[in-house]
């Protein structure tokens, strides 16, 4: 999502910015006109599309709008949300992290092994998953920022290697017979929501604030927008690059453990292909793969759009293969609208 499309509350505060003495602040209420409406429609195109899709499903299915179904959507979205957040940071720097799906698997397997060994301290399993993710992410970050291998290649390598590790750890079989204490992690209820959903909501809010309100967020945007300029402004470019891959790894690790806990199975094929849905969510949310442009809110919206669509099409019993066709078309359309609206800007 380009800056102009970022909803104002999370942004730098347009009002505060234009209060600067050097600027000519446009005062007064903007008049409602066709032009204004058109601009607004483009700015919130994704929200409008989302509302249309929701309206369509509500009209076609009585089940879609129930609170139970809403919960189902959120639970399905949660594992994607964590990796999509990390992916947003990576894509903002102009990189990509293809390894997150495999990191989910390897963290799920090692988390499950830990849970079996320490059934009374299942939180150790969560820590293990996150540490596994941190290691994978740090290797990615090191290879990208120090050895300077292109992110696509570096994380493609990790995608393959981590998947291999997931199978090695369980000798090719899923880890079964997990203690009930482990599966209860993902079912912990807080305010009527399960822990993964809470993590998703906290993650989105937290990263939205970090990216907009902290020096770290600004460094990430600057490194993606123009690494040379960032370096001249004193930003430690390599360190910043390393950090986004490490964060992406930790989040994938956390996501993996939660997933294993939810399905009570440490399967080495968990999370397979998730990286593509995460990248799709970021891109639908308006981020540029060239870096520097995008936002956490955009990703959250893109994520919910994909999950709502999955859920609604399931309810309408649209065959899975057709669902993929529709999702594919949506990704390209979303980016096309973004390219077109960016061109239109003055």
């Amino acid at each position: 999502m380009t800056d102009t499309k970022t909803p104002a509350p999370a942004g730098q505060g347009t009002g505060a910015a234009s209060a600067g003495a050097a600027s000519v602040a446009p005062t007064g209420v903007r008049r409602f006109s066709g032009r204004w409406f058109g601009d607004l429609a483009i700015r919130y195109a994704m929200v409008i599309v989302m509302l249309l899709i929701i309206a369509f499903f509500l009209y076609r299915s009585a089940r879609f709008g129930t609170p139970e179904n809403l919960t189902t959507i959120l639970i399905a979205a949660a594992p994607f949300a964590l990796i999509a957040l990390g992916q947003t940071l990576v894509i903002l720097t102009g990189g990509i992290d293809l390894s997150v799906g495999s990191v989910i698997a390897v963290a799920a397997v090692y988390g499950s092994i830990t849970a079996k060994a320490f059934p009374d301290n299942v939180w150790l399993a969560v820590v293990t998953g996150m540490v596994v993710g941190l290691i994978a992410g740090s290797i990615n970050g090191f290879v990208v920022s120090v050895i300077k291998v292109p992110p696509f290649i570096a994380t493609l390598g990790m995608l393959t290697a981590a998947s291999g590790f997931a199978y090695v750890a369980g000798n090719g079989a899923p880890i079964t017979g997990l203690p009930a204490s482990f599966s209860s992690i993902a079912n912990t209820q807080i305010l009527g929501l399960t822990l993964p959903v809470i993590l998703m909501i906290v993650g989105i809010l937290g990263f939205a604030v970090i990216m907009r309100r902290t020096a770290y967020g600004m460094r990430v945007y600057a490194v993606g927008g123009n690494p040379v300029a960032a370096q001249i402004a004193g930003v430690k470019v390599g360190r910043t690059l390393f950090s986004v891959y490490a964060i992406s790894g930790v989040l994938a690790g956390l996501s993996g453990v939660m997933l294993a806990s939810r399905v009570t199975l440490g399967a080495p094929n968990l999370g397979q292909g998730y990286e593509l849905d995460a990248i799709a969510a970021v891109v639908i949310g308006g981020a540029s793969l060239l870096g520097g442009r995008g936002s956490i809110w955009g990703t959250a919206l893109g994520l919910l759009l994909i999950q709502t669509l999955n859920n609604g099409l399931d309810i309408l019993t649209v065959p899975a293969y057709w669902q993929d066709v529709i999702k594919g078309a949506l990704i390209v359309t979303a980016v096309a609208v973004d390219v077109w609206s960016t061109k239109r800007r003055p």
């Binding site: 600004m218 945007y221 123009n226 520097g292």
Partner: peptide
């Protein structure tokens, strides 16, 4: 190429060299 981050606004570019 080197002076400014064009995808950021004036305030952000003005902040960047003195983030600390």
């Amino acid at each position: 190429g080197a002076g400014a981050v064009l995808s950021m606004n004036i305030l952000q570019n003005g902040t960047l060299p003195r983030l600390g």
